[in-house]
Design a protein around this nucleic acid. Sequence first.
DNA 1: CTAACTGCAAACAATTTGCTCATGG
DNA 2: CCATGAGCAAATTGTTTGCAGTTAG
Lengths: 170, 170
Amino acid sequence: MVDDSKETASAIERLCIEHGLKMTGQRRVIARVLSEAEDHPDVEELYQRAAEIDSRISVATVYRTVRLLEEKGILERRDFGGGRARYESRDNGQHYHLIDVDTGKVIEFEDEQHVALITAIAEKLGFNLVSHRLELFGKKREKIADGGAKKGQSDKNAVLAKKASVRKRG
Amino acid sequence: MVDDSKETASAIERLCIEHGLKMTGQRRVIARVLSEAEDHPDVEELYQRAAEIDSRISVATVYRTVRLLEEKGILERRDFGGGRARYESRDNGQHYHLIDVDTGKVIEFEDEQHVALITAIAEKLGFNLVSHRLELFGKKREKIADGGAKKGQSDKNAVLAKKASVRKRG
DNA sequence: CTAACTGCAAACAATTTGCTCATGG
DNA sequence: CCATGAGCAAATTGTTTGCAGTTAG
């Protein structure tokens, strides 16, 4: 919702430059679209939005750009099922998603304890955590009038990491 | 690990019958393969194993069967990256997966604290946790000669990973 | 100037589907 | 019997790539 006018270089464009990427017209557009996106668009969606700004863009370029940006660590790829990859800027901070099973709405939240926990688990299993994926699916509790459902911020949950038990099938 | 000879109906075959599915020869074979699998085979792998038992089976049938069983809630579909869907029987109990990013090997583990944590998080956001998804991706720590890292349950997955590295993502 | 980029269409890989024949219950 | 299922190949879908022409730096 930030007003990124055509003049200003978008946040992602700046990152591209930092990474020494050639800033072509189409990349600039895609970067802007990505910077402005507050959701998790798939390539097709990105393509639409980009084409709205400049129609001289092909899907192939969107695919290539998105892949490049992911490799550079600028974007993060998500798989919410449905067969298509979805992307979001990585500098939105580390956060997770809770999907409202009734409305399909996605709520973002962060939680350091979770990271600590799974890091500990991985370590316990003899691994260094490279990345991970977490999605919660929930039903809203119909009680409190004000939901505050926009962008939750959760910090202090009590449980702490210590106990991960390996399980072998049998 | 039980010796399911041709005589005995496999666990999944029994479930199929309970669900009123017509038990054809190929379904019986696929059901058996699935019941005996201790890893998370993709369709191609299932096809191979099934064909070994009875070569009159086509991939299309495997796809159709696996989809059907998933709809019936007998199988669970997993996406460990690599582009192919992988399946495992649902009655194997609640557990998570840690994927070795180098070998593609999958390690299963369970952790009660994790459930407690995410339940608390969901609650804090005003939701009741319905379900969730968690996958860890890690690199094995090869340093200390501790030896306690060999927790894997299937070598088949390593093979799959190698095969899948045609040109996909990792 | 030239290595990097783009568009386009063809190539691909995973999965689905139309159609015809086979078969379980 | 006949509704279901199987086989096979053609069709779809999401994504990648070869090639020839463009362009940023």
